[in-house]
Simulated assay, not measured.
Amino acid sequence: MARAISEKCRRCAKLPVTEAKEKDCWVGQPCHVRRHGYRNRDRYNKQKKQQYAIVTGKIIPEVTVAVPQTPAAILHLYRERKDAPLHAIAAELWVGGKQVAKVEPVHCLGWTGSQAKQYSRDILDSFSGQLEECLLERFESQVELNPSQCPIRPCPLHPEAN
Rank of each mutant, 00 (worst) to 15 (best):
C134T: 06
P61E: 09
C108E: 08
Q69E: 06
K58Q: 15
K48T: 13
P151L: 02
L145N: 03
Y44G: 13
P105K: 00
N162L: 11
I59W: 04
L93I: 03
E80A: 08
T18I: 15
A20C: 14
V67Y: 05
A116G: 01
D42K: 07
L93V: 03
H32V: 14
T112G: 06
H32K: 15
V106C: 05
P154G: 03
Y78F: 03
S6Q: 11
A13P: 02
K98A: 04
Q115I: 04
Q115T: 05
R79P: 03
D42I: 12
L135I: 14
G37F: 05
R81K: 13
A73M: 00
C155G: 02
A4E: 15
K21S: 10
I123D: 00
L124F: 04
E104D: 15
E132K: 07
V17M: 10
Q142H: 07
P85N: 04
H36P: 11
K23H: 10
S126A: 08
S128P: 00
T64Q: 10
T64C: 08
T70P: 04
T56D: 06
L145P: 01
K14F: 12
H107P: 10
K23G: 06
D125A: 14
N45R: 14
K102V: 09
D24V: 12
E92G: 02
A161W: 04
P68R: 02
A88H: 03
V65F: 06
N146M: 09
C12R: 02
I152S: 01
A72I: 08
Q149D: 14
E144S: 11
D125C: 13
D83S: 12
V100N: 02
Y44C: 14
S120G: 06
C9V: 14
Q149I: 06
E104P: 05
G57N: 07
D24L: 13
N45D: 15
L145M: 01
L86M: 05
A91M: 00
Q50Y: 09
G97H: 06
R35E: 04
C9M: 15
C155S: 02
F139L: 01
H107F: 08
K48E: 13
Q51H: 11
E160L: 08
Y44N: 12
P16R: 09
C150L: 11
V27N: 11
E80I: 07
Q29N: 13
C9I: 11
P16C: 13
R39I: 09
T18K: 12
K98P: 01
I5L: 05
I89C: 01
H87A: 06
E7V: 14
A2W: 08
A20F: 02
R41A: 15
A13Q: 04
C155I: 02
S141M: 07
I54R: 10
G96D: 00
